[in-house]
Amino acid sequence: MKPPYKGRGAVGNPDGRYNAWQYEPVDDGWEREDDDSPPRTEVSLERPRTVIARNDSPDVPFDRSLNAYRGCEHGCIYCYARPTHAYLGLSPGLDFETRLTAKPDAARLLRRELQAPGYRPAPIALGANTDPYQPIERRFRITRQVLEVLDEFNHPCTITTKSALVERDLDLLTAMAERRLVHVNLSITTLKAEIARRLEPRASAPHRRLQAVARLRQAGVPVTVMVAPVIPVLTDPELETILQAAAAAGALGAHYMLVRLPLEVAELVEDWLRAHFPDMADHVLNRIRDSRGGRANDPRFGHRMRGEGIFADLIAQRFRIAARRLGLDRPLPPLDCSRFRPGMEQLTLF
């Protein structure tokens, strides 16, 4: 198997399932030099008509979300959003983390949608699909612009991220927190740098995410920690340790999600395991299947986030016990939708 690229998650770039042609490398016996330079990040601009996405899933606690970017440079190999790149005619592998799309008009579109007659406020989830604070946010600042609109309109939101870049917007987040308009959720998969470096190559290091938890809490922003995903054998032994570190950093609550491998993610994760952790690859994959009815993924509502079976039940019990012991099992104060006031466009003088 070809060695993985440094700083990238996927070890391959398989064709998307909707591509008209599928390509497979074949060794024809001729020796030739391949271009082994790491793929560079490319960003294209997208001009959608709307920016608020709606859902009616019973597995998530929100009915609307906003994603400023397609694809994610963090390169987390397990990301359940990878298959969405196939809709663009791109690969869920390396393309997902190197060929990205940004929505520079997101804040303007959000403003227009919030001002639409009949709009009813409810928390908007930022980071439901791809990370709102991935590295290209430093340049595009789309998440920052979206938060400015939400702050102006007194509209509540939740933020889920693996990036310490969230600290950049402490001025907005602090002001919004005072009005009960924001919750921040930091996702932490492992505390071991050597695993995180391969598992989530361009996300913030684990210790920086914990520092972000502490700094947000010092500023009065409600913060929870998501132990996600819990990967059997590879990261599940750290479950209690992560929760203890989160509590020490000041997190107010915690959640977890068992790893799920929809569509192309299953093959990508298997290739990644065999490249980085060949000795435990079969063990990890067998435990995942044990928790998914013998398959790599179980898409049923009510099962996809937690799994089932002896191993999944044990993870759930361990989480409940540790969270209760550390005081991380209490819900956050609800966000306040009553403050919402749609802004008024400046009147045109005739």
Results as ranks from 00 to 15, higher is better:
Gln134Lys: 14
Pro342Met: 04
Phe340Cys: 11
Val11Leu: 09
Gly12Arg: 11
Ala251Lys: 03
Arg325Ser: 12
Arg260Gly: 11
Ala193Lys: 08
Pro278Met: 11
Ala316Gly: 11
Arg330Ser: 15
Ala81Trp: 12
Ile310Asn: 09
Arg330Ile: 09
Ala266Met: 12
Arg82Val: 12
Leu261Met: 15
Met305Gln: 05
Gly250Lys: 05
Leu94Asn: 03
Gln145Tyr: 04
Leu147Tyr: 06
Ala175Asp: 14
Arg324Asp: 09
Asp171Tyr: 11
Arg320Trp: 10
Glu178Asn: 13
Cys79Lys: 03
Pro331Glu: 14
Gly71Trp: 03
Asp15Pro: 09
Cys76Gln: 07
Asp56Ile: 11
Tyr256Gly: 00
Arg320Thr: 15
Ser57Arg: 14
Asp35Ile: 15
Pro278Lys: 09
Pro342Gly: 06
Glu46His: 07
Asp171Leu: 07
Arg289Thr: 03
Leu110Gln: 04
Ala316Asp: 13
Thr224Arg: 09
Ile77Met: 05
Leu328Ala: 07
Ile321Asp: 14
Pro333Leu: 13
Phe340Glu: 00
Gly89Asn: 12
Val227Gly: 00
Leu186Met: 14
Leu45Met: 14
Ile288Thr: 02
Arg108Gln: 15
Trp21His: 13
Leu150Tyr: 00
Ile142Arg: 01
Arg287Asn: 08
Val182Leu: 11
Glu46Thr: 07
Arg208Ser: 10
Val225Lys: 00
Tyr119Val: 05
Gln211Met: 15
Glu264Asn: 06
Leu347Thr: 12
Ile77Gly: 01
Glu270Asn: 09
Lys192Tyr: 09
Asn154Trp: 08
Arg208Ala: 14
Ala193Thr: 11
Arg144Cys: 10
Arg202Gly: 00
Cys76Trp: 02
Ala203His: 02
Thr189Met: 03
Leu216Ile: 09
Pro58Asp: 08
Arg341Tyr: 06
Thr174Ala: 10
Val227Met: 03
Ala281Thr: 08
Gly220Gln: 14
Pro206Phe: 04
Gly89Met: 07
His303Ser: 13
Gly118Phe: 00
Ser204Lys: 01
Pro262Glu: 10
Ala254Gly: 11
Arg139Asn: 10
Gly220Met: 07
Ala53Trp: 09
Leu347Gly: 01
Ile136Val: 15
Ala116Cys: 08
Asn13Gly: 06
Tyr256Ser: 04
Glu73Leu: 05
Thr130Trp: 05
His155Asp: 03
Ala266Ser: 14
His283Gly: 00
Ala20Lys: 15
Asp56Trp: 08
Ile136Lys: 05
Leu258Val: 15
Arg8Lys: 12
Gln211Asn: 14
Pro229Ser: 05
Leu273Gln: 01
Thr174Pro: 06
Leu181Cys: 10
Asp171Pro: 05
Arg208Cys: 03
Pro121Met: 06
Gln145Val: 00
Met344His: 10
Arg139Cys: 05
Tyr119Cys: 01
Arg208Phe: 13
Arg99Tyr: 07
Ser163Val: 07
Leu199Val: 02
Leu243His: 08
Tyr80Arg: 10
Asn55Thr: 15
Ser291Glu: 04
Asn286Cys: 01
Gly250Ile: 03
Pro38Gly: 13
Ala203Arg: 05
Leu165Ser: 00
Val284Thr: 03
Gln115Ile: 05
Arg8Asn: 04
